[in-house]
Amino acid sequence: MKTTSIQSMKSILALLAVSLTALLVLPLVNLADAATGEKEYVKLRNEIWNLFFRMTTAAFVVGAVVSGTIIWLVWRFRESHPKNKAPTKWETGEAAH
């Protein structure tokens, strides 16, 4: 049981890592594009709102992973789940504390 849970945890973490790398790379590509155009002054509000949307996107990606995990945990490990009829090894005392 322990190994499978860690494996699934690892796959979630891998997914998280991939999506965040994408988030890191995309704005850099945009930045490279923007640098070619000629501009006199920094557009303050655009810079700040762009930062805001980059960070909100990251927050919502992480949020989706975390809340998805919570919802799945709640659904899978509720005591009324068909696979949860029998007491776990912690309840029967087989597992060492």
Partner: peptide, 8 residues
């Protein structure tokens, strides 16, 4: 992963 996000 958290530290990575925070660093970014």
């Amino acid at each position: 992963v958290i530290c990575g996000i925070l660093a970014w």
